[in-house]
Amino acid sequence: MTTDIAQPAAWLAYLTIFMAAGLVLIMRAAGVLGAHFLRTGPRTQRIVNALPGCALAAIVAPAAMRGTPTDIFAVVVTFSLYLWTGRTIFCMILGVSLCLLGAHWQAGNLF
């Protein structure tokens, strides 16, 4: 597929890609290296374990609220069913299907 969108020079494009790659690697390594300076008993480890989940929750909740009613329905049903069943593939397929069906239903492409 071709595009008419103006593009950065090749050197700038690759500089950006490798700068982003280096930065993401530093972000990953910072946590592992930072753990050397943390005295990790069971309690500290439980607190540390909670933090990435907090970041995920802080991404998912507002993004879900910004969706259409059918999007929100898809997230709520998928999340609830996962908590109930613990079946990853089933919930993934169901969630994606609900998103697709909901969007096409709202667009009037169904029925």
Partner: peptide, 24 residues
């Protein structure tokens, strides 16, 4: 809708944290 499915994917990850990670 597929782009939003990414949020569904992340919601399952949050569900996995709730179900199985040793954290409050």
């Amino acid at each position: 809708s597929l782009a939003f499915a990414g949020i569904v994917f992340l919601s399952v990850l949050v569900g996995m944290v709730v179900r199985g990670v040793d954290a409050p």
